[in-house]
Design a protein around this nucleic acid. Structure first.
Lengths: 219, 219, 219, 219
DNA sequence: AATGAATGAGGCTTCATTCAT
DNA sequence: CATGAATGAAGCCTCATTCAT
């Protein structure tokens, strides 16, 4: 009496729990028994579905990011302009709500662990690449509609995505200097300055500028 | 006649070793006995100078970053123009040589650990703030000499430093997309586009652009 | 079909071993690995059933004394007179055979440890109280049959039990002055003098005395 | 420039500290460094005066008890009657003030440790014997003045001293049943009943009794 | 005579993994 | 399929002891 989907379902249940626990206590303090508890299964079940702890962790990393990407896929259609879609993408990635926070925490753990783990490097290369491409695609679409400055969309994407990652780290560390609100505005600022089409100034005095400005002061 | 500063010396010796080991095997796999071996002392000596493993690790994080900052302090004078100084700062922070790589790896470990450790968050806030200020200072100096675009130096600093961190993570993960060379050029690109003064174009066709461009293709 | 009471059985097995080892080498030198060896389980099994070493030790103390008491429960019925029952109780408590010796040694360790441990003080209060009550009950029964002198049975019990403990300590320390035989006779002497009904002397000259006497010389 | 007494003085200083710490934290948790701190010397000094920890402990036990005995020596003269002297001895041994409590605690630690240590058994045999003899001597003196019942003073001493030890243990364990006040009265009760001369009753009805009675109820 | 920096053996505890049921 | 009892390797930490000064 094989219920073929039981296995897949169980796996997902375990990986979901793994992500929760990783986000919660970190890879350092992660115990399989914690995952078991959160997943509502016995510790033996974990190793029934995954050979080693490392396997669980790696699968959880993959699971975490592919789920994040999935959520982004339909995002394009729901925006009127490609620039708005870009801003929407960025907004959805901010470590603002619990959902995004957990995903970010897991991702940050992957970064630390991935420095010495080729498998995780592969995961990063593959899934992170998709995320970067998503951004690049949005930029390219905007350029095609004449809403974005010219320039290599891939480079622009690197600039933006790199910055998002760096700022997110500071938010995750509860930096008083870099709150999530400040991060949001900083991201929009970069889109304004580097990506979105600059309205041509009419008076020479304003030509080329005024550049970066206008964020509210910290705190 | 007391041995004058055996203690301070020994502490530094241990912390140096700790950074080496953290960069090498990660916080996860860090064993005090490894640090002891690298430091050339007994394992007991470690806990003679630091109460717990956590204390060693926290002190090592602090040590790692304050040493990095120290190395940057004299960097201003050695450059002819503030923009060059800025580029020099960025260059010195690239995860290019073994020295910088180790510092980056340790720093990345702090990020992961710091998400749940207030003490490390303090370290980040304090030392990372100094690094951001260093960059902001360089930008301000360039603005005063008319070499940089106007705009809030702090925001500009956040844009640049954030991006550096984000790109560095990818380099540390051996991303095929983001090598250290690509990172360098991406950083210079951002300085060109956002910070350094744009030579005013003579022909309207070129006005405001051409923006991001010119990096060699990946791989 | 769950293994029915593996847990209870295993616990008892471990506590039995713990008592043996405590009696053998003392609390001071007690190692969990020794208990494991005697119990025939792995060291991990110990901490699987008991969170900490302290938990094992406390449970062992409780186990040791409640088992001792259990053995005494049926003792009443097997004696013709309450005074004989009392003497039987005392006899069974002498540190004479290996069984009683082990129980005494464990108990003596509890005394030392209990001076600073409230949990053990509770154990002592509860179980030691039962033992004292057992004696008081025997005295009361004897009084009711007119075989014992009048007087508060609880005080009499304190006198007797206190003395038993004090003398036992000397026996446990292998005092040449206080052997187990001497202890036995000293206990009977106290029962004779203070508890058992004194046959009324016929001649006034002997009235009330001669009291304590008649033990063989030491050694 | 030898100050010959420095050594003796230092030793005593260390032993005094050792007794304090043993009484305070127990033999189990005793660290030489604690003794050093209390004695106001370096940890090295301890092992300069004593080869091993065991040596310190054994010497401390001896020191503890011989000092207790010393304090008792002059006690005989200060009492008008030998029975009062006996009661005075008992009173001075009650674990009532801080001084006596510390001595008792150390002594109780010796009991636990002494079960497996011949050296400590010797200390017990020798010093405990002196204490028992002191009591026996007081009883003998009382008998000679016709104030005590006849009977072997040594046995009487065993009865009394044994009971004191047993009751003291309960007091040290903070038994709610056996407080120091209750212990005092129980001791006097035993002296009344077994040792002090009973006033001959005038009426036959009272002959031989009333025995043990009259203590206030517990708590 | 005294110090205290340094050692390293040893034990408790954690926890991934195994496996009988 | 799933369990959870049992294992045992491994590491942090404690602390008596040593020894250069």
């Amino acid at each position: 009496m094989a219920r073929p989907s039981v296995e897949a379902e169980r796996r997902e249940q375990i990986l979901e729990a793994a992500c929760t626990v990783i986000a919660d206590v970190g890879l350092q303090a992660l115990r399989l028994s914690d995952i078991a508890k959160v997943a509502g299964v016995s510790s033996g079940t974990i190793t029934y579905y995954f050979d080693t702890k490392k396997d669980v962790v790696n699968a959880a990393f993959e699971f975490n990011f592919s789920k994040s990407l999935e959520r982004r896929q339909g995002m394009f259609e729901s925006h009127s302009s490609p620039i708005d879609a870009l801003r929407g993408l960025v907004e959805s990635y901010l470590p603002a709500d619990e959902h995004a926070l957990q995903a970010w925490r897991v991702w940050a753990e992957l970064w630390a662990e991935g420095m010495r783990d080729e498998t995780l490097q592969e995961v990063n290369e593959r899934l992170y690449g998709q995320w970067r491409d998503l951004i690049a695609e949005a930029i390219r679409a905007a350029q095609e509609e004449g809403l974005a400055e010219p320039g290599d969309p891939e480079i622009m994407s690197n600039l933006l995505v790199g910055m998002i990652d760096g700022l997110a780290v500071q938010v995750l560390l509860h930096s008083r200097h870099m709150t999530v609100d400040r991060m949001r505005e900083t991201c929009h600022c970069m889109i304004d300055e580097l990506i979105a089409k600059h309205p041509r100034p009419t008076t020479p005095a304003m030509a080329g500028g005024p550049a970066v400005s206008g964020l509210p002061p910290v705190e």
